[in-house]
Design a protein around this nucleic acid. Structure first.
Lengths: 361, 361
DNA sequence: TAGCATAATGGAAACGTTCTCACAAACCGT
DNA sequence: ACGGTTTGTGAGAACGTTTCCATTATGCTA
């Protein structure tokens, strides 16, 4: 009639003919326990394949050594790289990772967050999908520290680490301006997300600084998806005065843009310059290779984990210090998809609306 | 001097002037509780922002409603798509996801797995990095059900869901053979992993069926990384009698292969046919678009979750039924990177050893 | 030899739940 | 008026830990 459950400390203790308390001490290495007894206990534990129940331990110690990560999805290389990096960081510091993806659905996001708090995570790393959230009060009420990444919350009420969206975007646009472009298109995601908002603003800012009047026609705000890129690029090309360069604000949008450009026979970089915020590996293999603003995922991950764990440790380091706001540097990666504008008008073939791409699902 | 911890059931109960037991019943909706009392309790819970501690609940109920996922990394689109899909599946079924990535390091893998069992997950979805593992005995001892995905364990001792590595590989090779290729190169990962092993075998099998003598010179087994692809492609090109087609066994290897081909000026598909096991979105944007064997991540994820949860539910469905082994279908995606071999010898430029690519880290 | 720190042990409380009971009150059908 | 069901409630055990505390040997110093 072998037991049908995992061996518990009680089992170990009784097999080693000792008390639970002593067994606990022996295994955790704290407090007094005679060498002989320790030996017996260790052996018993070994024999029973004893594995401490971290859930119970967490309950007693009120620390779970686990943190939650909430991202919109795992299909965009953006979040994937982040998750991988964060997972590494946490592992190295003895923490477990609970992962949830929200598909940018507010209700789902709410549920997952509440749920993670329920799981008693020690902290939360969170890509918020909304700028203002009742979840903040909630988190405060539950005494669960959280750090926002990638996207900001209004007023930055909690620790925040984002990329230099505005500055990077500005640099990209300036690059195009510097090449002599007068009509620069912008294809980006929904500006309700701060990252998209800031990139958009960076673009406008650069134009203003160069004394170029922003043309609303040239700005296409949609979603961070390949399908949107295809549509938006099509629209830009059909303008009576199409752009000579396009700044794409997310790698997820790029496949659609490139596809449309190919289908319409517009050549890069002669007839159209193309630059993207956010570098992914296949950009360097594209024909021509794509110039991009590269962001340091690892740095962001490190910063976020650091911030969170310090905050979670609380007490000593001052749990009530004001929220920290950080931006991690971008890097300009010059490749071959940008060049001075060609003189003369742009001609392109009539293109069918491209079919859906394998997007973020 | 407000409380510095989360509100517990006790707090709710005392605020509602009732017992813990009744509060529990009211909130869980089980058993008898008077309407008036229920009202009071719900209000108290609301006021205190009460959130049940799932850790404690799990302890008592011996069910955690969480499952662990162990993957080699999250930078390869392969595992990323899988993780995303599994995360969706689990979320929909009310389960939490604990994620760990091992970097294919056996020691790390061991630790993470033991750790997850310690967390008392209800089950494990696992990409094993070794074919035989003492972890199996361990899992059995801990009564933690697990399903292996992507890679098989020797003898398939537990539920297993993999892709049709062998058949897909065979189909890819047959495609090249059908085009008339006589010298088909193979670039793949370490065959200690069953997926790589089976793909390699599928390739050999196809050759044998076509009465082609496999040439060891043409087979390059290394790692699933871009850097390896670059090296291996270089080696193949330098052969006195180079291949006219290359079968690449993993998407992660492709960037390096393509880079080398570009650098040496070998044109696709005229001078070299290229086909890849495992389709990723940028293949369709490559020049030319890459022919590939596409695998159904979502299907695999669904199957794995189904299998695991049934197993975890145990009892009713027969917890002791023999392990299930499943393969999920591949799809052949014909694009433009494959063509009949060109007559005449292949010429290529001398190429430098390409620098490291952004690989799996 | 008394006094006292040190070493070794086990009992029991606590963490926050759920859930089995026992009990009491109310309501029923005879 | 009586046995029986239904309704409502709370005490307390249990889940598997850690940890505080009390207890007992043991060794040492004065």
């Amino acid at each position: 009639m072998g037991q049908v459950r995992r061996a518990s400390l009680k089992d170990v203790a009784s097999r080693a003919n000792t008390s639970i308390a002593t067994a606990s001490r022996a295994l955790s290495g704290t407090g007094y326990v005679a060498e002989a007894t320790r030996e017996r206990i260790l052996q018993a534990a070994q024999a029973l394949h004893y594995q401490p129940n971290l859930r119970a331990r967490g309950l007693r110690q009120r620390v779970s050594h686990s943190i939650g990560l909430i991202v919109p999805n795992l299909l965009n290389a953006y979040y994937t790289a982040l998750a991988d990096s964060i997972s590494q960081q946490l592992g190295a510091r003895g923490y477990h990772l609970l992962l949830a993806s929200t598909r940018d659905d507010a209700a789902t996001e709410h549920d997952m967050l509440v749920d993670m708090v329920g799981q008693a995570v020690d902290g939360l790393i969170w890509v918020p999908s909304v700028a203002e959230s009742d979840l903040l009060d909630y988190l405060a009420g539950q005494h669960t520290p959280a750090v926002a990444i990638v996207r900001r919350l209004k007023g930055d009420p909690i620790d925040t680490v984002v990329f230099e969206d505005r500055a990077g975007s500005q640099a990209a646009t300036q690059h195009l301006i510097g090449l002599g472009h007068k009509r620069i298109g912008y294809i980006g995601g929904d500006v309700m997300y701060s990252s998209n908002h800031d990139r958009w603003q960076g673009y406008l800012e650069a134009l203003r600084q160069a004394r170029q009047e922003p043309d609303e026609e040239l700005v296409r705000l949609g979603t961070n998806r390949g399908t949107w890129g295809a549509m938006a690029a099509n629209e830009l090309l059909r303008l009576s005065s199409p752009p000579t360069a396009i700044f794409v604000a997310s790698n997820a949008i790029m496949p659609g843009v490139i596809r449309t450009l190919r289908q319409t026979g517009v050549t890069l970089p002669d007839e159209m310059s193309l630059i993207c915020f956010d570098d992914v590996d296949w950009f360097s293999l594209s024909v021509p290779p794509i110039t991009a603003i590269s962001t340091a995922y690892t740095t962001l991950a490190e910063a976020a984990v650091d911030l969170l764990l310090t905050r979670a440790a609380g007490g000593s380091t001052g749990a009530d210090r004001p929220p920290v706001y950080m931006e991690v540097n971008f890097e300009f990666v010059l490749r071959r998809s940008t060049a001075p504008p060609r003189v003369g008008a742009l001609h392109y073939h009539e293109a069918p609306i491209p079919e859906a791409l394998a997007g973020e699902g």
